[in-house]
Amino acid sequence: MTTPRDLLITTMDQAAGRAPERGDLSLALAGAELIDLLDARAVTLAGDHIVPSDRPTVADRMLEEAASSLARQAPYDSVDAWLWRRGRDLSEAYLAVLETEGQLGRRRHHRWMIFQPPHTVLVDSPARRHAANRCASDEPVLAALAAAVGIIDEPAEPSPSVADEAVATVLAAVHDAVRDLEAERQRRAIDEAAFDNIWRGE
């Protein structure tokens, strides 16, 4: 299993009443990919820039796709720029992968509501149990990513367990990107409200 898959499964399991915005989740998934690429030594960080290795060693198809999307010559991608580029619609891509692998099912809310569209649910699987165990153990990387998308509360202080400086850099970039996206949503909401008031003559 990979960190992005664990994050998506954890989100689907934990997000009742706290479902994250898709854009937030996509940014966090991109960050999770980068953390796994760092762990696999497929990339390193030079400051806040991502330097691919000569021989990336990843066995997951989505991580291979992520690695192949990186700039391989200077100037390399910055972490922030890559999160925004790679993160576009990434949650939908991972959902499609899980569905293809048979890890998602369809279920209706009520049997008598025959015209209600079914919603996607996780099936019981080793992958789901692995993600649940990782979440239950408060593994710091997964916990930080889950906090970034809002499915668990932010810790009072940054976790001292994330000792790897490169991983900490990626986690900080994910949190910053999610905050920037939320600020953009708020600006758009204010602009739309002002436009509606003009039309209503208020």
Rank of each mutant, 00 (worst) to 15 (best):
V170K: 01
R55C: 05
D153W: 15
I35K: 00
L29E: 01
D48V: 13
D124Y: 11
V149P: 00
T11A: 10
M113P: 03
P75C: 02
P20W: 06
L29I: 05
A19I: 14
D54W: 13
P52C: 03
Y76I: 00
E33K: 13
S125N: 08
H110N: 10
E202F: 10
A146P: 00
R111I: 11
L171Y: 00
L181C: 14
I152W: 06
H119M: 07
E64M: 08
A172V: 14
L98Y: 00
A173D: 05
A66E: 04
E92T: 10
E139G: 03
R111Q: 08
R22M: 13
Q14M: 15
P158S: 02
V170N: 01
S68C: 01
Y76F: 15
A59W: 09
D80I: 11
L181M: 14
R72C: 01
R134M: 09
Q186R: 15
R106C: 06
P118E: 12
D196H: 14
R108F: 08
T169H: 02
W82S: 06
R107T: 12
S137G: 03
P75I: 01
W199L: 14
L37S: 02
Q73G: 07
V97L: 15
R41K: 15
H175M: 06
A144Y: 00
V79K: 04
M1W: 10
L37I: 06
L38F: 07
P52A: 03
R106M: 11
V43S: 09
A46V: 02
L45H: 02
L122I: 02
I190W: 08
L90Q: 02
A173Q: 02
S26Q: 02
S53N: 12
E192H: 07
D60A: 11
A194W: 05
L45G: 02
D36M: 07
D164G: 08
T2Q: 12
V178A: 01
A183F: 01
S53Q: 04
L142V: 01
T120R: 09
A156L: 13
L38P: 00
A168I: 11
A16N: 11
R5D: 13
D39N: 07
A163H: 08
A156M: 03
T3C: 05
V43Y: 08
S159T: 10
M1C: 14
S68P: 03
